[in-house]
Design a protein around this nucleic acid. Structure first.
Lengths: 260, 260
DNA sequence: GAGTCCATTTCGGGG
DNA sequence: CCCCGAAGTGGACTC
C-alpha cells in the first residue's frame, strides 16, 4: 500500500501508522497537539500546542508552527526517527549522530496522520545566482569592458577566493568580485582585502618583472548601496553594473534540442 | 467551523476549501501533484511532481519535496495568497510586494486538502546562544578572569560591534569576542580588526592620558580550531574556553515562581 | 570528514 | 523603513 490515512486516531493506531511509514520510507504528515524538547548544538523547549509534523524519507524531521518559513524545531537529513509508547502516550524521537542532537516530541492528541510514498522525480531549475553571473562573464567578458580577458576563476588568496581574475586591454590585472544582489559595504571591504593580499604578493613575486602593471579592483553587481559607493570611490575601486542572467538551463536545453 | 478536510477533491472543491481557509486565516495543508515557477530575487522552475504545500495564516507559503529541511520553493510572511481556476485547472499564487516576487503553482491533481484554525500559544524557549553567553559573562565576569570588569556591550567600532568591552584588574582594556560554537579563523581575524580600530582610536584620544594602558584581545568560545589557534597565538590574542549557558529561562521562572 | 562560501538565506533587534 | 549580524543557519562543493 502506498499510503495510509487516519483521522483522530488513538495513540496506538497512530504509532502503528508511523512505524509502517518509517519502514516503508514514506513521507509522513502529522497534525497533533504536542510538546517538544531539543538538545544538541543548542537547547530548547516548546510547551503544548497544535503543530504540523513532517517526516521525510531522507531522515528530515520538521515541526512547523502556524507562522514563519522555518520550522520551530527540526532535524536534518540522515537523522534516525523512532516512535515509542510510554504510559499510554505516544513519543517521537529524532536522533542525529554527529553532532549529537536529540529531538523529542510528546504527542498529547493526534488529529491526523498520513504517510505517502511520494512520486517526485524533478529537481529545481534555477537562475539568477552569483555562479550564473560568473559563467556569463567568463563566456562574454566584453560585458565588463572591451578587451577584458578573464584568466582564473576562484583564485585563492590569503583572505578568500577572488571570483574572477583577468587582464584589461593594457595588460593591467583585474580583480572582480561578483554579487548577484545589491552590493553592500562588505563587498567593497572584501575587494579591498583581496587587493591588499594581491599587491603584497605582487611586490614579492612579480613587481620586478613588470614595474608599471596596475591592479584594478572591480565590484560587479546589479546595483550598489550608497554607503558602499562612498567607500568604493575612496578606495579607487570600480563598479560595473551587471544583472545576473535570468535564463534557466532548461531554456538553453530547448535551444540545443533544436539542433537534434 | 474550525477545520475542513477533503480527500481527492476535484479542482473546484479544492478551490472552495482554499478560499474558505484563506478567509478564515487558517493553516492549510495540501498534498498535490503540481508544477511550480518562481520569479523574484532569483528565478526557478520545478516540473510536475507530488509535493506538500503549506499555507500559514501569517502569509507564508511553503512547498516541500520529499527531502531536505528547506522548502523547494516558498514565500515569506505577509505574502498574499490567491487561488484561481483557469481552463478547469486550479492555480495558486503567492505574491510579495517588496521586493516583488511571485510564486505560481499549477495543480494537476490534488490528493488531499485541509485547513485548520490552529491553537498554539507557546513560543520556543531557547538557550545556548551567543547572547546567552554575553548575559552570563556580564553577570559573572569572574568566568573570564578574576578582577575582570565589563563596561560596555556591543561597543561600536568602524568594522563592527565588539561584543563586550571591559578592564582587567590592572586597568588594561579588554576586547571580548564571543562565539557560542567552536571558533574559527574568521573570529580571530574579527578581533584583530577590532583591535586595530581600537588602537587607532586609542592613539588619537586616550594614549596621551594613560601611556602604559594595554589592550588585550580575548576570544571567548567553547573551543577553537587548530588553524584559528595558530593565528591567535601569532597575534597575541588570548583564548578563554567558556561553554554557552544551557539553562532555559523557563527553569529560572520556575525558581521565581517558588517565591509566590 | 572538515573547511569554505552562497542563499529567493530567514529572523530579530536597533536606529 | 533599512541596516546589521546571528543561526541548532542549510546545502553544495572542494580538498
Amino acid at each position: 500500500m502506498k499510503y495510509k490515512i487516519l483521522e483522530n486516531p488513538n495513540y496506538k493506531e497512530a504509532y502503528e501508522l508511523i512505524e509502517e511509514g518509517l519502514v516503508k520510507k514514506a513521507t509522513m504528515l502529522l497534525f497533533a497537539c504536542c510538546k517538544v524538547s531539543y538538545e544538541g548544538r543548542a537547547l530548547s523547549e516548546l510547551d503544548y500546542g497544535e503543530r504540523i509534523i513532517m517526516i521525510k524519507p531522507d531522515g528530515c524531521f520538521l515541526i512547523h508552527q502556524d507562522n514563519k518559513v522555518d520550522p520551530v524545531n527540526w532535524q536534518p537529513p540522515k537523522s534516525k526517527t523512532k516512535a515509542l509508547i510510554k504510559d499510554e502516550t505516544l513519543y517521537l524521537e529524532s536522533h542525529r549522530r554527529k553532532p549529537p542532537e536529540l529531538l523529542e516530541v510528546e504527542v498529547k492528541k493526534i488529529h491526523y496522520a498520513r504517510y505517502n510514498l511520494i512520486e517526485d522525480y524533478e529537481e529545481l531549475e534555477r537562475a539568477g545566482y552569483e555562479k550564473d553571473m560568473g559563467d556569463m562573464i567568463w563566456d562574454n567578458p566584453h560585458i565588463i569592458e572591451e578587451g577584458f580577458r578573464p584568466t582564473v576563476r576562484e583564485y585563492a588568496t590569503e583572505h578568500g577566493f577572488i571570483d574572477i581574475l583577468g587582464k584589461d586591454a593594457d595588460g593591467n590585472l583585474m580583480v572582480l568580485e561578483l554579487k548577484a544582489r545589491k552590493a553592500g559595504i562588505t563587498a567593497v571591504k572584501q575587494i579591498r582585502r583581496y587587493l591588499t593580499d594581491f599587491e603584497n604578493r605582487e611586490n614579492k613575486e612579480i613587481r620586478h618583472e613588470e614595474e608599471k602593471q596596475k591592479v584594478r579592483g572591480l565590484l560587479v553587481a546589479p546595483s550598489i548601496g550608497d554607503d558602499a559607493l562612498e567607500l568604493l570611490e575612496e578606495e579607487g575601486i570600480e563598479f560595473v553594473s551587471v544583472e545576473p542572467p535570468r535564463e534557466l538551463k532548461k531554456d538553453k536545453k530547448v535551444t540545443l534540442d533544436a539542433f537534434k
